[in-house]
Amino acid sequence: MLYPFSASIPPAARRRWLPGLAVGLALVGCSPRPEGRAGDGASAASQELLLVSYAVTKGAYDRILPRFEADWKARTGQAISVKTSYGGSGSQTRAIIDGLDADVATLALAGDVLKLQENGLVQPGWEKDLPDGSIITHSVVAFVTRDGNPRGVRTWADLAKPGISVVTANPKTSGGARWNFLGLWGSISQTGGSEAQAKAYVGSVYRNVDNLPKDAREASDVFLKRGQGDVLLNYENEAILAKRSGDLKAPFIVPEVNIRIEGPVTVVDRNVDRKGTRQAAEALAAYLQSEPAQEIFAEEGFRPVSPGVWSRVKGRFAPVKTLFSADDFGGWKQINATFFAKDGVWDQLFSRSR
């Protein structure tokens, strides 16, 4: 099963479930395997995978997964079925840790994959398995306002104005909400402000938040369907979807200073090795970086990581002048420890803003 787009993966960067085995293959998931391991590769009549993802990716995967299944069948002769589970990224991460039998996880942020690694489900070095740090989608934070933007919300600073009602999800359960938090913080820290100024500003914004939905999709529903709030902070792709569906009439705002939201993919090593599904799971993970999959992600409002696809579709997306990333905060291990661990900055600010 040859996937030409994966040929650039450095052999040294690919993990092997036979320790010490050196295999210089440009075949995704075609590593040797013990004889008789049921469900691994094309030896079985059919195979099933479970993809666990965060809520707002469903529309994309409803289109991508049938194509992968057909591609796998054409290349191997084996029928495959990819089942799915969706929810807030933090909640999905906890579910996998607690036993949800995921073969592949596409979570909202690398910080959640690190939690799987810390619990022994994913091997260290997962981000080197595929190009671009195993990232499959990009996005940015968008502001969705009421028709005509009656409260005049246009910049990050406007969110802290007295009387503005802000809707954003809960960072304890939602990956999108953590990106929103970093967008808020970085709008100060990445433009010359101090830590004290960032903390004061973010605390002011959260005092304008009336409730914290569990994930990005529920936050959209709270704002668009229940009519709560003056402004919604959410993924750009969610705003694009709302425009396409007719739920959003007014233009949405993409701040010129923004954070590059990165959505990773990982094979859940402990599960695939136990179930014998590594070959298919690695093929699915790699397929998500292929041009057919990246084109669908772009059509669903995500910014593709494929340079070729991005060059064709970038005119559909709002320009961003200053784009910072998780690396500017020290990476997700540092972010989790500083902002979202017990008694971290989020806990401190939330207790003060209530």
Score class of each variant (00 low, 15 high):
4 P>K: 08
7 A>E: 13
14 R>G: 02
21 L>K: 12
22 A>S: 12
22 A>N: 10
24 G>P: 07
25 L>Y: 04
32 P>G: 11
35 E>T: 08
36 G>N: 04
38 A>K: 07
48 E>W: 00
53 S>P: 01
64 I>F: 10
64 I>D: 02
66 P>V: 07
68 F>Y: 06
76 T>W: 09
77 G>I: 04
78 Q>A: 13
87 G>H: 04
89 S>T: 08
93 T>M: 08
96 I>N: 00
99 G>Y: 01
106 T>I: 12
106 T>F: 11
107 L>S: 02
107 L>H: 03
114 L>T: 04
115 K>Q: 12
123 Q>M: 07
125 G>E: 08
128 K>Y: 13
133 G>N: 13
139 S>K: 05
144 V>Q: 04
151 R>N: 10
153 V>G: 00
161 K>L: 09
166 V>E: 01
173 T>K: 07
183 G>L: 14
194 S>I: 06
198 A>G: 15
200 A>Y: 01
202 V>M: 03
206 Y>D: 09
212 L>R: 15
213 P>G: 05
214 K>T: 15
221 D>T: 09
224 L>N: 02
225 K>T: 08
226 R>M: 05
226 R>A: 10
228 Q>V: 12
228 Q>N: 14
229 G>V: 02
231 V>I: 05
234 N>G: 15
237 N>H: 12
239 A>V: 03
240 I>M: 13
241 L>K: 08
253 I>R: 02
256 E>G: 11
259 I>F: 06
264 P>M: 02
265 V>A: 00
266 T>E: 03
281 A>D: 00
283 A>V: 00
284 L>H: 00
286 A>E: 00
288 L>N: 01
291 E>V: 14
296 I>Q: 12
296 I>E: 09
302 F>Y: 15
305 V>T: 14
307 P>Q: 05
308 G>I: 05
310 W>G: 07
315 G>T: 10
318 A>Q: 12
319 P>N: 14
323 L>V: 08
323 L>M: 15
326 A>N: 06
328 D>S: 10
337 A>C: 05
338 T>K: 15
344 G>K: 09
345 V>S: 13
